[in-house]
């Protein structure tokens, strides 16, 4: 495996994206809204497409805003349909995101003349190319460092999410634990829901512009679920989930470079391998976790039988 500074940047960017997602993912998992990450990351497509068609350029700010709006609308529509139409929440989520996704596809194909947008870049991202877009060259200890734009953006998003989670820790905890109780105590759990969804949408958009929606979906859910198997402390769960996310980012890129080579192939997509690595970490934890692992449970059960 040959490692260049570009690889370091890829890992840094992937880790930042993964960390930003994992922070919020804890509360999605605890609220039993995990699939919302999946829904939002598919549903932002029309937002991107409309921003492209209106501005006629790959201006990242308009794209960002368009996608974020589409993401928040997904949450709002899902809520509406399940409330006014009395449809199961999962089903209403599915309807909303597939419809928005179809709309996005249609818009992209229709506007293909003046828009250069490939839907697959939304899925996979282009993390391998992100380090090339350098915007800042500070000098540290005599070393000049070339900081890519994406790294700065994602660092900002991660920081913002971290501040959000810390500042609203108590509100997030109580409204996720028991929304009715939170409401009777004057903490508006609906407001918390929409705040969280807005942040998920913004994070999703910020991340998959560079790393693709697979990482977003995987990193929202898998690290948080893994951490949930390891601890009974909420703050520890949040910390662990971020560590697991960073770990799968690093492992993911390394394995993207090395694993295909074992079988005599060239390298493969980092985003895909990050998701796979997160899945491997999850499976390991699921089997061997000290308290809630499958093996431990099995041992306990057989002991109980004896």
């Amino acid at each position: 495996m040959e490692w260049y500074s570009i690889d370091t940047w890829i890992v840094v960017i992937a880790a930042l994206a993964a960390g930003a997602c994992a922070l919020l993912g804890n509360f999605l998992v605890l609220r039993k809204m995990s699939m919302m990450g999946d829904a939002i990351s598919h549903a932002v497509l029309p937002g991107l497409a409309i921003a492209f068609i209106v501005t006629g350029a790959r201006a990242s700010l308009s794209m960002f805003i368009g996608a974020a709006i589409a993401g928040v609308l997904t949450a709002v529509f899902t809520q509406w349909i399940s409330r006014f139409g009395k449809v199961d929440e999962g089903a209403s989520m599915g309807i909303v995101f597939t419809t928005l996704f179809a709309l996005g596809l249609l818009l992209i194909v229709q506007g293909a003349d003046h828009v250069d947008l490939d839907p697959s870049c939304v899925l996979y991202g282009a993390i391998e190319l992100t380090p090339l877009d350098v915007v800042w060259r500070p000098t540290l200890f005599g070393l000049s460092i070339e900081v890519p734009r994406t790294a700065l953006v994602l660092a900002g998003v991660t920081l913002f999410n971290a501040v959000f989670v810390v500042a609203f820790f108590k509100e997030l905890r109580i409204s996720s634990f028991d929304a009715e109780l939170a409401t009777t105590m004057g903490i508006d759990s609906k407001l918390m829901h929409y705040l969280l969804m807005t942040l998920v949408a913004v994070t999703t958009v910020a991340c998959f512009e560079s790393v693709g929606s697979i990482i977003v979906i995987a990193m929202l859910i898998v690290p948080a679920a893994t951490a949930h198997l390891l601890t009974d402390r909420l703050w520890l769960m949040v910390v662990l989930s971020v560590l697991i996310a960073i770990g799968s980012a690093a492992l993911g890129h390394m394995s993207a470079l090395t694993v295909p080579a074992w079988f005599g192939f060239a390298d493969t997509s980092t985003s895909g391998m990050m998701a796979v690595m997160a899945g491997l970490i999850f499976s390991t934890v699921m089997l061997f976790a000290p308290k809630y692992g499958v093996l431990q449970r099995f041992v306990k059960r057989t002991q109980a039988v004896k």
């Binding site: 605890l30 509100e171 905890r173 996720s176 634990f177 028991d178 009715e180 909420l234 520890l236």
Partner: peptide
Amino acid sequence: YVPQRETVDWDFPVSALDVVAMGTYG
């Protein structure tokens, strides 16, 4: 308000002390 016990997700990562401290949130 003390809700019915069935409405709660008991796997939620909080300790007894955390749950009690929720009483002060309001």
